[in-house]
């Protein structure tokens, strides 16, 4: 008992540190950008005494994007953690369920056929593209689940079918992409690389319900994840309704990742790396793992997006590329170090 308590305390403390780091990077990120704003002016803006220009930069350009980054980061990371638990495979991430490929194909089709003709839909028109992405992601995920179904779904089969469907969507994607005019092609490429393109408060509002409902729900389901990640036989032995819980958790992961991909494009590696980093800090128990994964993902994406905005300033690079460039070396380091 004593040791359990100790670990628990340590985990909570690490989460506190993570939260502090988020706050810290939040303020650093707020201060960084092509238009230089001195920290003192930032504070002035927050107490309502800033110039109109600074207010515009901070509240309309930087803040909504940062908040979206935090939400997407948390969502993708938790989705990854769920999938790694459910698939009993440390290499699972939302991309494996075809969410990125499905959403990507939907967006490419949207840019190819629809773009520019949807302005008649009024308020709804700005959500057409994210909704298309969401629908595409969901479709791909259900296709994979259906094809992997054979008197139940085994993790290995899920992963294998995922690889196959991903390849099929990727092939369809390249056919359409190659027929595009150069600027549409570029728009599609940037989306596919993962870039936070939805950058205003309307999207924050649209995104928020998914995150604040689904993430706490997964915390509530944490103990089932603990059981499921022990493997099917153990799980059945412990009396878990394996298939039902697995389906619910998968659905949650898909909904989380789908909403994130709709707003942030095909960000790879985050759902893979964040749970690993969190696991190294707080251990494998999902009650602690899921919250710290959420914090870790939010932190990683915020930092990556700050880099993406500033490294080649004034032009920007897709944040997904920064995440891969940071995540892959860490992954390689893990590979070299672990036995």
């Amino acid at each position: 008992m004593e040791s359990v308590k100790h670990i628990n305390k340590r985990a909570v403390a690490s989460m506190g540190i993570l939260a502090l780091l988020i706050v810290l990077s939040f303020f650093i990120s707020l201060n960084m950008g092509y238009i230089r704003i001195a920290p003192i002016d930032v504070i002035k803006v927050f107490i309502g005494a800033g110039t109109e220009e600074n207010q515009l930069v901070l509240f309309d350009f930087r803040l909504p994007r940062m908040v979206i980054a935090l939400l997407i980061g948390a969502g993708l990371a938790v989705s990854g953690a769920i999938l790694q638990g459910v698939a009993q495979n440390g290499l699972a991430d939302p991309g494996i369920l075809g969410i990125n490929a499905g959403a990507g194909l939907a967006v490419v089709l949207f840019i190819f056929f629809v773009q520019g003709t949807s302005s008649g839909l009024g308020m709804l028109s700005i959500f057409v593209m994210p909704l298309a992405a969401l629908a595409g992601g969901m479709l791909a995920a259900s296709l994979i689940y259906a094809l992997a179904w054979k008197k139940g779904v085994t993790p290995v089969r899920l992963i294998l079918v995922g690889i196959g469907i991903n390849a099929a969507f990727g092939a369809a994607l390249i056919i359409f992409q190659l027929k595009m005019n150069p600027r549409d092609f570029m728009q599609a490429t940037i989306w596919l690389s993962g870039s936070i393109w939805a950058t205003n408060w309307k999207f924050v509002v649209a995104m928020l319900p998914w995150i604040i409902i689904l993430i706490p729900y997964t915390f509530y389901k944490a103990r089932y994840l603990n059981v499921l990640s022990l493997g099917d036989h153990t799980a059945v032995g412990l009396g878990a309704a394996v298939e039902k819980e697995r389906r619910i958790l998968l659905l949650t992961a898909v909904a989380l990742a789908g909403s994130c991909v709709a707003m942030g494009g095909g960000i790879a590696f985050l759902g893979l790396v964040a749970p690993h980093l969190a696991r190294r800090i707080v251990g494998p128990k999902h009650e602690m793992l899921l919250p710290s994964t959420a914090l870790m993902g939010a932190l990683l994406l915020l930092v990556s997006d700050t880099i993406a905005r500033n490294i080649l300033s004034p032009s920007e690079i897709p944040v997904g590329l920064v995440v891969s460039a940071l995540g892959a070396p860490y992954f390689i380091y893990l590979l070299i170090k672990t036995n």
């Binding site: 773009q115 520019g116 593209m129 600027r183």
Partner: peptide, 13 residues
């Protein structure tokens, strides 16, 4: 140039 450049309600910003 085109509506595609303000996709994602960038128009408002």
């Amino acid at each position: 140039d085109t509506a595609g450049m303000v996709e994602g309600d960038k128009y408002e910003q």
